[in-house]
C-alpha cells in the first residue's frame, strides 16, 4: 500500500516520499526518532505519522467504512441504532408523544420554565421513571441527580416513586409468581437508593462533579440518566467576564454531550428563564444567553397557558415543534386533567 493513501497533510506526504518512504510497510519498522531525523520534522509529528500508518496497516481492506476515520458510522447504522434507542417516559402521554416516545437516550435535552412550573418535578419524575424494570417496558437503569439549587426534596421523591410503583402494579399483567417477586423488588426505598444525589454549592464544584462523572459512570454502567437541576443557578453570579462564562459553559456542554453518546444515557439540563430586552420590549427566554442555546440537542420550554401547564419543543433536530399539556399532581407528572375528561367523553 502506498503512503499517498494515508490521511496525512500534503507536505508530510511529500516529505515522506522524497525521503524514500513510499510504502506503508517501510514505515512500520522505523522508530519515531529516526523518522523525525530522516524527513526533518518534529518528534511529535513523527509519532503522529507513525500512529496513522500503524492504524491503517491494521485495517481490513474489505471494510471500507473504517478507511477514512476509525470509529465512523454510516448514516444507515445510526438510523438503525436510533430506532432501537430506548426512551424514558415522562408519565404524561401527550408529552411522550411530542417527544417521540419520551426522553431520548444519547441526547442532551434542556428543559426550562418559570419558577413553579414543574421543572424539578419533571426532573424527579424522570429520575424515578428511568428505573422502571425492563420487563415493564422501562430501562431498569439508575439516575444521577445533580442538585445546584436545593429544591430536591426526598419526601417528594418517595411520593413519586410510590405512585410509580402503584402504576406499574396496576398496568402490568403479572403471572401470580412474578407478581410476588416483582412486588418485593419494587419498593419506593429501592428507587431512592438508585438515585445518586450530588448537592452542589458553587460553580467550581459543579464543573468538578461533571468532570468526575465519566469515571463515576464507568464504575456504575447502569446509570441511564443524568439530571442537572439547574445548570444555571451558579452561573448567574460572580461572572463579570462573560466570555469566560461562555467558554466554561460550552466546555461543560461538550463533556455532557460526550457522556450521553459514550454511555448512551439521557442528559437533562434544567434551566431558568430570564427576560431579554429586544426591540423595545421584554421577552422571556431561557437563561445563559444565545451561545448556550447551541449546547443542547433538544430544547423544551414549559409555560402556563391559562390554567394549564404546557410543554413546547423549541428546538430539536428530529422532532417537529409541537406543544402538549401536562399536569403536576400529587403522584407526579401526569396527563393534563382536561385532556383526560376529553378522552373519556369520546
Amino acid at each position: 500500500m502506498e503512503v499517498c493513501a494515508l490521511p496525512l497533510s500534503p507536505s508530510q506526504r511529500s516529505k515522506l516520499i522524497s525521503s524514500g518512504y513510499t510504502k506503508i510497510s517501510s514505515l512500520l519498522s522505523v522508530s519515531p526518532i529516526d523518522l523525525a531525523r530522516d524527513i526533518s520534522v518534529s518528534h511529535n509529528e513523527a509519532v503522529e505519522i507513525l500512529n496513522v500508518a500503524n492504524q491503517s496497516g491494521r485495517f481490513d481492506k474489505s471494510d471500507p467504512k473504517q478507511w477514512i476515520v476509525s470509529g465512523a458510522q454510516t448514516a444507515w447504522d445510526i438510523l438503525y441504532e436510533e430506532d432501537f434507542a430506548p426512551h424514558i417516559t415522562t408519565s404524561c402521554g401527550d408529552l411522550d408523544n411530542i417527544l417521540g416516545g419520551g426522553i431520548n437516550c444519547k441526547e442532551v435535552t434542556e428543559i426550562g420554565g418559570v419558577p413553579g412550573i414543574g421543572k424539578t418535578q419533571l426532573g424527579i419524575q424522570l429520575a424515578v421513571n428511568v428505573q422502571i424494570p425492563i420487563d415493564c417496558g422501562g430501562l431498569g437503569g439508575k439516575a444521577i441527580y445533580i442538585d445546584t439549587e436545593g429544591s430536591f426534596m426526598v419526601e417528594r421523591v418517595f411520593q413519586i416513586a410510590k405512585s410509580c410503583v402503584e402504576d406499574i402494579m396496576e398496568n402490568h399483567n403479572f403471572q401470580h409468581t412474578d407478581f410476588q417477586a416483582c412486588k418485593e423488588k419494587l419498593q419506593p426505598n429501592s428507587f431512592l437508593a438508585n438515585i445518586f444525589y450530588f448537592r452542589i454549592c458553587s460553580y467550581t464544584e459543579q464543573i468538578a462533579v461533571i468532570n468526575y462523572l465519566e469515571k463515576f459512570i464507568s464504575e456504575h454502567k447502569d446509570v441511564k440518566i443524568v439530571i442537572i437541576d439547574s445548570v444555571t443557578f451558579h452561573f448567574r453570579q460572580d461572572f463579570d467576564d462573560m466570555a469566560l462564562r461562555t467558554r466554561v459553559l460550552s466546555g461543560m456542554a461538550l463533556k455532557l454531550m460526550k457522556l450521553a453518546k459514550k454511555f448512551s444515557l439521557a442528559v437533562i439540563l434544567l434551566n431558568q428563564v430570564t427576560t431579554k430586552f429586544t426591540e423595545g420590549s421584554f421577552q422571556l427566554t431561557l437563561a445563559l444567553g444565545d451561545s448556550w442555546s447551541h449546547a443542547c440537542t433538544n430544547r423544551v420550554i414549559l409555560y402556563w397557558n391559562g390554567n394549564e401547564r404546557y410543554a413546547y419543543i423549541e428546538k430539536s433536530p428530529s422532532l417537529r415543534s409541537a406543544s402538549a399539556p401536562y399536569s403536576v399532581t400529587s403522584k407526579g407528572i401526569r396527563d393534563a386533567t382536561s385532556h383526560c375528561k376529553r378522552t373519556r367523553m369520546m
Binding site: 426534596m153 426526598v154 419526601e155 426505598n189 437508593a193 445518586f196 444525589y197 450530588f198 448537592r199
Partner: peptide
C-alpha cells in the same frame, strides 16, 4: 477529594 453521592435513604428533610 472525590465528590460522593449522598444517601437518600437517610436524608429526610427536617
Amino acid at each position: 477529594m472525590q465528590p460522593q453521592p449522598q444517601d437518600l435513604l437517610h436524608l429526610a428533610t427536617q
